[in-house]
Write a protein that binds this DNA or RNA. Structure first.
Lengths: 189, 189
DNA sequence: TGACAAACGGAATCTTACTTCCGTATATTG
DNA sequence: CAATATACGGAAGTAAGATTCCGTTTGTCA
């Protein structure tokens, strides 16, 4: 699509995909502890090849985070379509959380564990913030949630839920945490 | 007090204190990223001296966590003395959170960032769990909080609050997060 | 098919901390 | 005030990983 992809040699394009896929899988499993050597081995290429495609480990991990994060905007847009303002908020939290489940690397990124991962994805962030803000503002206006709720609360609360996800993998715990959070959003704080 | 302390040479005891103080301060400021060399320099001793007193960096950090954590049991016991069951729970959450504020290293430990810090402090953990469990059970029995609340929810929720503390230092944000959590504990989930 | 630019592989290099070691200095004790 | 056990300092040793480099291989194009 981009000129870079057009001019890439066939084997290079293939390898890039393989590296990306391997990185996604290992990053999801082990977080930022993945080693480049591991990724290379898993992708069936040499270390040098990984570095040809991604100048640093950081750049590769940022790319992982970016592609996953871009899903958030889609989710927010879908949630916004729901008629019931309260359900839209609930949906926003629940589906965002589900999106993160099972990807330890992304969970760490959500938790801010390494701020570096978040540099360079401002565009994706903004694309999410817009619809999410509308969802929350609408619920506030409708009296469906506590009146002082703002978009800024979302990352904060999600960060908490994500940390439960990360440190108690399995699924049950974080859903309970989410329930408690959603209960706390009820109007009449 | 212990035989170790009694038989310690005077300069050694003094240095141990200095190292401990330096470690506490730097650990609070920088978390587990503190370097032994930094701690030594800050304490005004050589690297070797740090290692004479604490066999590994891990041991030193565990000691930091242990002393801080032992405060938790005291807090829980104090909260238990309050008559109002609901207030006792609120107090438990609030004061625990306040205890963590300002110590980034401990915050990371609370968030489980390195499970190693938690090995070897089982005793302190148990001393806290007992009164905290009683506080929560009493509130449940009194109908002051949602009936499915258990002690197990405490670490989970605190972990979330702590992550807000860590990633948004300054004070305002985490208190809001705490408010939302406390609101979510109300009966009638 | 031959020439050549583009990619590849992975050993070697660099970097960053933790940890060890041992010659030197100092507190303690009779 | 020795004699001696303790403790100290910090250079050197290791280890773990990221990153570079360059000789070799492979796709592309005329």
């Amino acid at each position: 699509m981009t000129s870079i992809e057009r001019t890439l040699r066939a084997d290079a394009r293939r390898n890039r995909e393989k590296i990306f896929a391997a990185a996604r899988e290992l990053f999801a499993r082990e977080g930022e502890l993945v080693q480049i050597e591991e990724i290379a081995a898993h992708a069936g290429v040499g270390i040098g090849t990984v570095y040809r495609h991604f100048p640093t480990k950081q750049a590769l991990l940022t790319e992982m985070v970016r592609t996953r994060f871009s899903r958030f905007a889609e989710i927010a847009i879908e949630c916004e379509e729901m008629e019931d303002p309260h359900e839209a908020v609930t949906c926003l939290f629940r589906r965002s959380a589900e999106e993160v489940e099972g990807d330890a690397g992304f969970q760490l990124a959500m938790m801010g564990s390494d701020q570096l991962h978040w540099e360079g994805i401002e565009q994706e962030k903004a694309a999410f913030a817009a619809p999410a803000t509308r969802i929350i503002d609408r619920a506030v206006a409708a009296g469906a949630v506590r009146e002082d709720l703002t978009f800024g609360d979302f990352p904060m609360l999600m960060c908490g839920i994500t940390s439960t996800m990360y440190y108690s993998p399995g699924g049950a715990e974080w859903r309970r945490h989410l329930d408690l959070i959603l209960a706390g959003l009820r109007p009449g704080s």
